[in-house]
């Protein structure tokens, strides 16, 4: 469903993504992990059409993101890392905007909006409020609803659980699981919450300095790294500093 072939993205002289190749089939929940500045956001921005690749090919549902961006965007739902919305709109209006931009039939849009609002426990009064008045978690719920409202074939989620309360997070994770495994949809997931990734995702890719450091199921990554948790495996595969020594150094510096 998602084919990333030799993708590179550079900003001037800085190479953010370097020759990345990954194939993600339908019905899979796939996580892209990496330390800060590893190239995750650049990859996501290319997948979603916010930026163009410098070189390489990205195909979603068989469509090239550069050659046929509209066809690609029809098939994806996207939740960006930072909940940036038009705060002068109400939640209702924002979803109207998102749905209209996705060419949804107004009746269908209203029906889905209603169902998703109920699922995410946003009351009728909330829906009439300006987004400026929403908390971070409530804004995140609106973003999730906007990403799901057209029932996309591919969901691209950048830190989707950020700010959600425990109940909403639980429901959303279950929705994702069934959406992929029963609905046959593809989910591309970026997160720093590794225990969620470990439990939710079928396959994980770790990138470091823009290049692919490892790819496989959670158990394959644990096996490859010889560690017992994904957190430790991630640390080892991305060449992080020695944990014990770093901890001691920090505490020693503080006590001086």
């Amino acid at each position: 469903m998602i084919d990333i072939l030799h993708l590179s993205k550079s900003y001037g002289d800085t190479l953010a993504v370097d020759d990345l190749s990954v194939q993600i089939p339908s019905g899979e929940i796939f996580a892209l992990l990496g330390p800060n500045g590893a190239g995750k956001s650049s990859t996501v921005k290319v997948l979603t059409g916010l930026m163009q690749p410098t070189t390489g090919v990205v195909r979603i549902a068989g469509f090239d993101v550069v050659e046929e961006p509209i066809e690609v965007k029809k098939r994806i739902g996207y939740v960006p890392e930072n909940a940036i919305l038009y705060e002068s709109l109400t939640a209702d209006e924002y979803l109207d905007l998102a749905g209209t931009l996705r060419h949804l039939d107004p009746d269908k849009l209203a029906e889905r909006r209603e169902e998703l609002f109920t699922l995410f426990e946003l009351s009728k009064a909330d829906r009439k409020k300006l987004l400026a008045e929403f908390s971070k978690g409530m804004k995140q719920k609106v973003l999730l609803i906007a990403a799901l409202i057209h029932n996309p074939e591919v969901l691209i989620l950048d830190e989707p659980l950020s700010g959600l309360d425990a109940n909403a997070a639980l429901i959303f994770k279950e929705v994702l699981r069934k959406y992929a495994h029963e609905g046959g949809k593809t989910i591309f997931f970026c997160s720093h919450v590794l225990d969620v990734v470990e439990r939710l995702c079928d396959r994980i890719a770790i990138i470091n300095h823009g290049t692919l450091a490892a790819i496989g199921t959670p158990s394959e990554l644990l096996q490859e790294s010889g560690e017992l948790s994904l957190e430790r495996a991630f640390h080892r595969l991305t060449g992080g500093a020695d944990i014990e020594r770093s901890t001691e150094d920090i505490l020693r510096a503080l006590s001086q």
Binding site: G49, P69, I70, K73, Y78, E87, L97, L101
Partner: peptide, 15 residues
């Protein structure tokens, strides 16, 4: 001032 919210236009399937 809210230019960052324009991501929706860039990621939506529109002409």
């Amino acid at each position: 001032a809210n230019y960052k919210a324009a991501w929706i236009f860039f990621s939506a399937p529109l002409d």
